Simulated scan of single mutants.
Amino acid sequence: MSAAGEAGAEGDAATRSTRLRAYQEELQERMQAAQSGARLRVHQLGLAMGGRRWLLDLTEAGEIVAPGPLTPVPLTRPWYLGLANVRGALLGVIDLVRYLGEEAGTDAPAAGPARLVTFAPSLGFNCALLVDQVYGLRQPGAMQRKDGLLRDAEGHAWRPLSLAALVREERFLHVGRQDANN
């Protein structure tokens, strides 16, 4: 690569890094405002998993990071993908679509880079979801409820997701296989 090409690539990386940092700071400010009870319009994080769109409450989300290598854990359920090291913390990585036993949907094609969305520390659970794409902030109040789902102005269906409810599910807490059929 030429020196000009390398400089351009470094500039692009710096620009992406700056945008990512600003995005994370905005998310952090909104999460702090939500936790302090400040009355802002309710925003949720839009995610794509398994070809479906999901809305996640910002107070339940931790960091959004690029997935690194996963270390498989033997004798675990198929939806438990393994362990990831995120800033020195070991997190169990979950494939939510497999956990729910759903087929992939068709509403949201996986077009973006995969990410790990960690659970908020307040949930007390060292876990992350492997997501196909992060859409950013969404405002459910601006969506219409139809067929039990929220629909945005473009007609995309969004499903609510509660990590707090997920970590209270007995089946979610037991990642070990009971027999060879699980």
Rank of each mutant, 00 (worst) to 15 (best):
I64P: 04
A66K: 15
V175M: 13
L91A: 02
R87F: 09
R138N: 01
L150N: 05
Q133L: 04
R168K: 14
R115P: 06
E63W: 08
A89Q: 14
L116A: 13
P140Y: 06
G105V: 06
A142C: 02
V93C: 02
P69L: 09
R87L: 12
V131P: 07
Y99N: 11
L149N: 13
E169K: 08
P121Y: 01
D107G: 08
W79C: 12
V65H: 10
V175A: 10
H174C: 12
T106D: 13
E154D: 15
P109Y: 10
F125M: 10
R145H: 11
L130A: 13
L150C: 03
M143S: 04
S122G: 02
L90F: 09
G68L: 09
A165F: 07
L137F: 01
G136E: 09
W158A: 06
T71E: 13
N126R: 14
P72R: 15
L150D: 07
P140H: 07
Y99V: 11
E63K: 15
D107L: 05
L81H: 07
R138M: 14
E170P: 04
D147W: 08
T76L: 05
Q133N: 14
V134C: 02
W79M: 11
P78L: 07
L100F: 11
L130T: 08
A84C: 09
N85Y: 01
E102N: 06
G92K: 00
L130P: 12
E154L: 08
H156P: 01
I94C: 13
A84Y: 04
D95R: 11
V86C: 02
W79Y: 14
L100H: 08
N126K: 13
F125A: 11
F119P: 05
C127W: 12
N85T: 08
N85A: 09
V175F: 11
E170M: 02
A157H: 08
E169H: 03
G148Q: 12
R77K: 15
S162G: 01
V131H: 04
A108H: 08
L163C: 02
